[in-house]
Write a protein that binds this DNA or RNA. Structure first.
Lengths: 239, 239
DNA sequence: CCAAAAGTGTTATGCTTACACCCATGC
DNA sequence: GCATGGGTGTAAGCATAACACTTTTGG
């Protein structure tokens, strides 16, 4: 969300008609400590200095918009293999007080695996990056609060109608852990037996053969099958 | 989709970094002659002169993207009250051979009522505008074929999961007419009794009290209830 | 042996599907 | 009176939702 700093003589690119800036903003979800988390970055510069914002940045002139989202993701988090989906394009004229900015929002689901490995790097203009609970957000810059809640809606919809919840977990996980994801994201308790039956009926999971040793009775570990994502997308649903 | 003509000395608007143009493209669906129709405009100018394209145009610098879609719709068809929904943003760098153009696609559902009244006006750069069968399209400019088929997918999804099919019909219609819409759009035959039961169970329709006199047994006319659209959107579904 | 989480089946209910005949009108 | 589309009900199968106890381990 940084205006590029002008290292060169300004105003090199001229057009007959005014043009907006186009940015991507990324809602990066993960699941940690039994909570749905979202990555935010603290802005250093005006406007909204010292307030938190979604990671994002300008779309380069010869770059696919989706590639821009992937690039920003890589730049700010070092993550490359992610589930990424276009969310919505926000285009009100005064979303950004400085100038006209149209933003294409993407949302990404990051597994706990990936989160553990990643090094979050604030962009040059961002002092600080951290995960926030989706249910205890700070005040947000621009219209990012609206964007974020729209993303939550979409994520809920996804979980209700597809089996993609496992994208928020590590490669192997127990069914109880998966149920917890659904309960926290959907914000409602679920019946354990029905949940297991339903999720296993979709054939997106298989036993990994390993077990999670822990404080109490060990639990079978599951992983998602290779075709799981394709399977989900094959069912005719949006998008 | 017209590059603004430069009446003035060019290059008045200068920026430090290059910026893309942002356009809106509108997929305008209606139902007519037992067929799903889409409005296309024949381009006069290069590139893709003489080929058909989606209506659309540039987003003004101080204009909401959705307002731009509504404005283009009004300019090219004189229609104002429409169901309009953002479809997707297409942002590959070479969609337009001239220059970088990012387009936000919207799809609109137009009732046969409205179609009857409207005067389709090609924009200044468009010679010609007409309705085409979705199932017999001409060759299309840019990536509009892809956009159109994505819109069809979304429309199908909408009809399968919501009761919004009536948006393609006049204010009053028979259940058989409505069923025809679903059959043509979804591209599959439906059972008459099940269709009626299902659609009436959703409470989006009510009898208008009138009847359609015709060749044979007259049919009850229905209209959709005032809250029908809200109702549909209240069920937690995308978006 | 106790605490804590894992795991497991059955029943009732509602929804979806398949299916075939009579009805009202115009000609 | 016949052709044409309008209109109606039921039974079977399937998915969903509600519900409680036993199992396995660690300490």
């Amino acid at each position: 969300m940084s205006e590029p700093s002008s290292k060169q003589a300004s105003s090199q690119y001229c057009y007959d008609y005014p043009r907006p800036s186009v940015t991507v903003d990324i809602i990066l979800f993960t699941f940690h400590d039994n909570d749905l988390k979202v990555l935010l970055i603290e802005r250093m510069h005006s406007p909204f200095a010292k307030t938190w914002a979604l990671p994002g940045g300008f779309v380069e002139i010869d770059e696919d918009v989706e590639d821009a989202a992937l690039r920003e993701l890589a730049e700010e988090t070092n993550v490359t293999e992610v589930y990424l989906e276009q969310l919505y394009t926000f285009g009100e004229p005064n979303r950004d007080p400085r100038t006209r900015v149209i933003t294409v929002a993407y949302f990404a689901l990051l597994s706990a695996d990936q989160v553990a490995k990643l090094q979050i790097q604030g962009a040059s203009d961002a002092a600080n990056a951290r995960w926030w609970s989706m249910y205890a957000l700070p005040q947000l810059a621009f219209d990012h609060d609206r964007i974020l809640h729209y993303a939550l809606q979409r994520l809920r919809w996804k979980l209700e109608w597809t089996g993609l919840g496992f994208l928020l977990l590590p490669k192997e996980f127990t069914l109880s852990e998966l149920q917890k994801v659904y309960e926290i994201v959907l914000h409602e308790p679920l019946d354990k037996r029905n949940f297991r039956r339903k999720i296993l009926a979709t054939d997106v999971l298989e036993e990994s053969g390993n077990i999670r040793e822990g404080d109490h009775r060990p639990a079978k570990l599951y992983r998602f099958t290779a075709q799981a994502i394709e399977l989900e997308q094959a069912r005719r649903r949006f998008p």
